[in-house]
């Protein structure tokens, strides 16, 4: 029986922006990929990253591109740690991001990214399209430097994730708080996730 409005909304999202926010090592990437596999298993996924990544450790429907303009039509675009590729003031110097986000609805792209702090993330992501924020836990020091508009919701997310973690059947890092729908959801980890996915950039040279 389907009873989560948040998961239902994600299933129906053909285009838009999904932000997974939380402090380090809270399971942002694993939960994001698990949500994609749970809600939209049939869509191709494209990892957007200017650095070389070991794409062979991902399933067959995953691909890798280095520029936003190369993201295939109809795919889900995943950006790990978006602040590396699109820092907070980048769009004021270069309007590539703005141009790209303006046409993702035409290209049926769902852009999903992980970030430790929305204050470091370009505001164009929030302005351009349907913007869904998913929260993991964020520590007090990170909340202090978070954007004003997200602090209250993040504090609520922290509280409810802490309460939900007391449920023994679920891994503590499986919980995600959907701000728009006021739901705290535990999503099962995809079977292919390993330590290598969690530390994907371990061998990469900057």
């Amino acid at each position: 029986m389907i009873c989560s409005k948040g998961l239902d909304y994600l299933r129906e999202m053909e285009h838009g922006v999904v932000a997974m926010v939380g402090s380090g090592k809270q399971g942002k990437s694993s939960s994001l990929h698990s949500l994609i596999a749970y809600c939209q298993p049939d869509r191709p996924v494209c990892m957007l990253d200017p650095m070389d990544i070991p794409i062979e450790i991902y399933p067959d429907n995953y691909s890798h591109v280095k520029k936003a303009t190369d993201v295939p039509v109809g795919s889900i675009c995943v950006i790990e740690d978006v602040n590396r590729a699109f820092s907070s003031r980048g769009s004021s110097r270069d309007n590539t991001l703005q141009s790209w986000l303006g046409i993702i609805s035409h290209r049926s792209n769902l852009v999903c990214f992980t970030s430790q702090n929305l204050a470091s993330t370009d505001l164009e992501f929030a302005r351009s399209q349907d913007y869904l924020i998913l929260s993991k836990k964020m520590c007090g020091e990170d909340i202090k430097y978070e954007r004003d508009g997200n602090r209250g919701a993040q504090a609520i997310a922290n509280y409810w994730i802490s309460e939900a973690e007391k449920i023994k059947d679920c891994h503590p890092k499986s919980w995600v708080y959907f701000q728009r729908f006021n739901e705290c959801v535990s999503i099962e980890l995809v079977p292919w996730w390993t330590e290598a996915h969690s530390k994907m950039f371990r061998e990469v040279k900057l």
């Binding site: 029986m1 009873c3 449920i167 705290c184 959801v185």
Partner: peptide, 14 residues
């Protein structure tokens, strides 16, 4: 706040 566990296509409210 609704707390939901999603497993194998089934969603359970807690």
């Amino acid at each position: 706040v609704k707390v939901i566990i999603a497993r194998n296509g089934e969603e359970t409210v807690v």
